[in-house]
Design a protein around this nucleic acid. Structure first.
Lengths: 192, 192
DNA sequence: TATATTACTTAACTTAAGTGAACGATTTAG
DNA sequence: CTAAATCGTTCACTTAAGTTAAGTAATATA
């Protein structure tokens, strides 16, 4: 598991054995069972999550209804808004599958940065990349219809469609589960 | 005009007179007329834009139709994706009003960083803030209907509704201009 | 100033999403 | 293992957005 992490990091910055050991010594790895809620609405937490294996999900509860706005899978990072603003969370984060996470917080960030200065460079690159990716995703969402969004997802993240329950996918696409069922049926009809 | 810039920056990092002079010496200020196209689809550019006064707009042209995905007004920054990836742009950027911009590119970034190290800190804070803001905006967009999106905009950015043409607003809300007209009429009816 | 173009609204009609309900098929919990 | 709850699909019906077209107002252009 550590190896996948080091492999991922080495795409961005080179790592010495010493630096690898620093990372390991911090004991950041956590195994969490499917269904575990990592963060609850109204709660405070400084933790941020980097997914090594598995899938976590971010969702709001509006009028008693879950609204899923994001999934994070292998090598994706979720830094909850409340951790940045030192505020209470507006949303939930839970595990969709048994998941292995790297859980860090800003205290650790300070420690990591002192022992491992490249870490700051890494964070900068990752957050720039994330920002760019998010802008594109947002643009694509805005300019697409629900059906186009589903087709895009099928192209870009076919794994999600397999591993995520339909009703959560629907909400992620901005529609109701029934509409997603119908939309899928419609697409199949068109093909034939 | 410089004063508004310094005032804005001083919210994040303190500025000495020397540093102010460094910034001014770089000659970053540009006045651009309404309608000017700053970036075209298919073109390359390293420039990024910080709006001091006025409004710029980011839009795609899909099947000959403009799809507006963002507006940037006073004290907001647009770093085009193509400037990060050194790629050709997928979208256009144009001026909605006569606008005063701060135009910078990564070459200047190097120069600024050497003469003015705090600049890096400033950029980091701003991009973190922007990332957080974008995530919230995206979430809000996903969990809202077009009507709710319009009402949110009315709450959060009433200035946009005044200064932006309806058909661009519509596309920004993810709907057609006719639907926006109808939606507005519907809201007025409900109120009475 | 006259003319052309563009912007906004309204209307009628079409298409797709929301809603409520029903039905098996899974999954979960006792 | 069984009962209960949840999930996914389908249906009929409602509501809202897309489409096409028309008309008026505002703006830009010659």
């Amino acid at each position: 598991m550590q190896d996948t992490l080091f492999e991922f990091i080495s795409k961005y910055v080179s790592l010495t054995e010493d630096e690898k050991n620093v990372l390991l010594s911090l004991d950041l790895f956590r195994s969490v069972k499917k269904g575990t809620i990592l963060l609850k609405e109204g709660h405070k937490s400084q933790d941020e999550y980097f997914v090594l294996k598995g899938c976590i999900r971010k969702y709001y509860i509006i009028d008693g209804e879950e609204k899923t706005t994001a999934f994070f899978t292998e090598m994706e990072n979720l830094t909850p808004h409340c951790a940045i603003n030192n505020d209470t969370s507006e949303y939930f984060v839970s595990c969709l599958e048994d998941t292995i996470l790297l859980v860090s917080n800003s205290d650790m960030g300070v420690e990591i940065n002192s022992k491992f200065p490249k870490f700051e460079t890494l964070c900068k690159i990752l957050s720039e990349e994330l920002l760019a990716k998010q802008q594109i995703d947002f643009d694509e969402f805005k300019i697409s219809s629900p059906e186009q969004r589903y087709l895009n997802l099928l192209q870009n993240r076919p794994d999600l469609i397999q591993r995520v329950p339909q009703h959560q996918l629907a909400s992620y696409l901005g529609i109701k589960p029934q509409s997603l069922s119908r939309l899928r049926a419609r697409i199949l009809e068109k093909k034939s």
